[in-house]
Amino acid sequence: MSDSVALTGEPLALDLVNTRPADGDLLTSPGELRAWLGLEADRFPEAAELAAGQLGAPELAAVREIRDHAARALDRARRGARPAAGDLAALNAAQRAAPAIGELGWDGEAVAVTHRRTGPARARLAAWLAEAAAGLLADPRVTEVRACEAEDCVLLFLPAHPRRRWCSAARCGNRVRVARHYRRHRPG
């Protein structure tokens, strides 16, 4: 499997950081952002709506900026170091730019609360992603975030099992096992 295919299923902040694999950047156009949001549609309430809407260069720039701040803060926090104040301030500012509200409605049987953000799409999208980064950075398990052990991979993951070594068994685990097998069984 190519590293140019988005890996999803980790906490949303890691999925975002992992859109910059070793062989490039998966978010270089509004279309790529829309596709990634489609993969993440069940992760936050407005993902599908934002993916279906008009996403342009400003939204892409906002997401990439959040990704950069989150990646730098996460790199330090997972090692037990203090993230740079500028990175934390940028993540906080993104959340403040599109405040979250609990919108009340009737679901047919009871009053329900839907969490939404106010403001333009660019600010809402950046705020949701900054909130995901804040949640991960504040989680005590942030120090458990690991980098994939495959030699040519830079993706991060939060292992559910302590012996997990790769971002994906199918992506890197298989590649490492095949290479190991080849080294052991290659002709003389």
Rank of each mutant, 00 (worst) to 15 (best):
W36Q: 11
R124Q: 04
E40Y: 01
D68M: 13
A121P: 14
E151Q: 13
L88Q: 15
R163A: 14
R64M: 07
E149A: 11
A130P: 15
V142G: 07
R122P: 05
P162D: 03
A100H: 07
A169M: 15
R171C: 00
A62M: 07
A57F: 06
S2A: 11
L74S: 07
I101A: 13
N92P: 10
C148F: 03
R146Q: 08
L39V: 05
R20H: 13
D23F: 07
A138C: 10
A121F: 01
V176L: 01
P58G: 00
A130I: 03
A110F: 04
A61Y: 06
A133G: 02
A147E: 11
N92V: 13
A134W: 06
R78M: 03
L156M: 02
C153A: 02
R20C: 04
A138Y: 00
A52K: 12
G80N: 09
E10T: 00
R76C: 06
P30G: 07
P99A: 11
E131I: 00
A93W: 04
A132L: 08
L74E: 03
E65T: 14
Q54V: 10
L27N: 11
L26Q: 09
P99R: 15
V5G: 08
L14I: 15
A130T: 04
T114G: 12
P187S: 09
L74Y: 06
A112K: 15
L33K: 06
P30R: 14
L14R: 10
D152Y: 04
G86N: 07
L37N: 07
A22D: 13
F157N: 00
E49P: 02
